[in-house]
Nucleic acid binder design. Sequence first.
DNA 1: CCGCTGACTGTGG
DNA 2: CCCACAGCCAGCG
Length: 118
Amino acid sequence: MRTEPEPLLSEKPSGDGFRERVLQVVAMIPRGNVTTYGRIAEWLGRPRNARQVGGALSRSPDARRYPCHRVVDRNGNLSGGWAFGHPDIMRQMLLDEGVSFLPDGRVDLAECLWEPEP
DNA sequence: CCGCTGACTGTGG
DNA sequence: CCCACAGCCAGCG
């Protein structure tokens, strides 16, 4: 039998490995909680890179292996919803985990926000 | 090397 | 509260 070749698309340490670190943080988000792009960026020491966090989730082929549906914007909106086919999919995944929503459809951050600790 | 894009955010009206 | 604008900066063609 031969060994299965690793997918060429696997994550490469680019530069300081920003994208990789993003996924590492995402992996830490507890079930039933969410965090924001900005918080992840800040925790990585790059408070101005919230947008790049979104880009990392969007482009990394490995993103599918992480609970990236637990990342929302600063107001609790599911800004990445369409990456799951339809925002309802992402919302349902969160509901299944016990994440609470406000009447207006945003995640209840006061209740479910998780903040990484140094 | 250059210009455009975007799963963001803060500010101001 | 909603909207428009302007910084932000890593990827990608």
